[in-house]
Amino acid sequence: MATHKAIATMGIKQPLDIITVSTISPERDEVRVRVEWTASTPLDLHQNDGGLLVKHPQVLGDGTAGTVVEIGPEVKILKIGDKVFGFTWRKQEEKAHQDYCTAPEWLFAVLPERYTLQQAVTLPNNFVTVFHAISTDWGVDLPWPKLEGYVPEEKDKAVLIWGGATSVGQYAIQILKYYGYTNIVTTASKGHHEALKKFGARWTLEYRSSNIVQDILDTTGTDIRYVLDCVGSLEGSMKPVSKVAGKGCTVAILLPVVVRDSSEDNDPLYGMDTQGCCDWEQGVEVKGVRTHFYLEPDIMHTMLKEGIVEPNKQKVIEGKTMLERAQKAMDALRRKEASGERLVWRVSDNLEDK
């Protein structure tokens, strides 16, 4: 059987390494994609440094962008040579941090013209996260396709996006604007405020302000209907959010709860309980957002093609080898070197199909 290289965790906070894995030929509706670009995520750090929900060695990556090189007999849409991007995560052969991934075609969207794979790979995981947080955890309808003249019933209700400059936050603001929400409040450092207002935020607040709770209350009163916490930090976001979320508010928090961040000097500490770790007012509904779900790829393709959403800005991680690039990206995550941009890197060292 043919084999190829993959990036894997070796143990808690250990350096990444290359392992050899089988190259899986597609069956039924599957395609094999030569992985050319990926975007590293906090989940990669959580898995490597904290062992979150993994057993080492673990092949990493869930954001894939590349070229279809082989198709299964039941594939209906994609063809060999198509440039695609997708959210692939369920099994080792689907993971992104390897030369090839094999997954069902419905996990991929075709790359629209005028965009590069490098740009498109900033969408899949966090774009999906936004749709599921809003539709599943908030319980808000996001009809697709959106009919002309559609106006949501709660369009003027205050919506708080904590961490608007994060990848999830940027897509949340753009998608909410597209669906007609007019009273979007977000927190971010001042350098990102102008861009977030262009995306659709009505109010932008400095999250590092010592008076951030009062700033939010002065802006919204106590009438916040929905909150999306894109950070999930116990001290940095959840506790402030718990002080502004009143009765009738629905709060969705990206998991895991980060009790202590990973750093070069400290090991991380995570939790999964969003309810018990804060003093929530009675009548506040709190949900933990689990990001690994499926989304119809036509939505992602169309929203990108029509300019409804913009790709995140990219910080390209350079290196001579796949392993060097992967390790530099992991180190950059740990050091929090990216703000308002995604850490993206070229995956395969061999861009010729075997």
Rank of each mutant, 00 (worst) to 15 (best):
E36N: 12
G72R: 01
L117K: 02
E94K: 04
P26D: 02
G232R: 10
P311F: 00
I12P: 14
G200N: 00
K197L: 00
T67G: 03
L269T: 15
D141F: 15
G248Y: 11
T3A: 05
D44S: 09
A158I: 01
V75G: 11
Q174I: 00
G221S: 04
W138T: 00
T9V: 07
T129F: 02
W203N: 11
L60W: 11
L217W: 00
I18E: 13
L117V: 03
D215W: 02
I18K: 13
R90A: 10
M238Q: 11
V227K: 02
V140N: 03
N125C: 15
H4M: 11
F293K: 14
G86Q: 09
V151D: 12
P112C: 11
D215R: 04
K157N: 12
E70Q: 13
A8E: 13
L123A: 07
E352P: 10
R342M: 09
K79G: 09
C230M: 00
Y207A: 06
T274P: 15
V110D: 05
I224N: 05
R90V: 11
Y178H: 08
I77C: 08
E281H: 15
E306H: 14
L295K: 01
L295S: 04
D279Y: 14
I317Q: 01
E310A: 09
K13Y: 15
S233R: 10
L123P: 01
C249A: 14
G86W: 07
Q118W: 04
K328P: 04
L269A: 13
N312Y: 00
P152A: 10
R225F: 13
P15L: 10
W162M: 08
G149W: 12
P73M: 03
P42W: 06
E27I: 12
G307S: 03
D215H: 02
G11I: 08
K76L: 13
R90N: 03
A245G: 03
R28M: 08
F127R: 04
I216F: 05
G169D: 06
V227N: 07
A133Y: 07
N125W: 10
L351M: 15
I77Q: 08
S40N: 05
V121N: 01
I224R: 06
V258R: 11
F108I: 01
A332V: 02
A96T: 04
K79R: 08
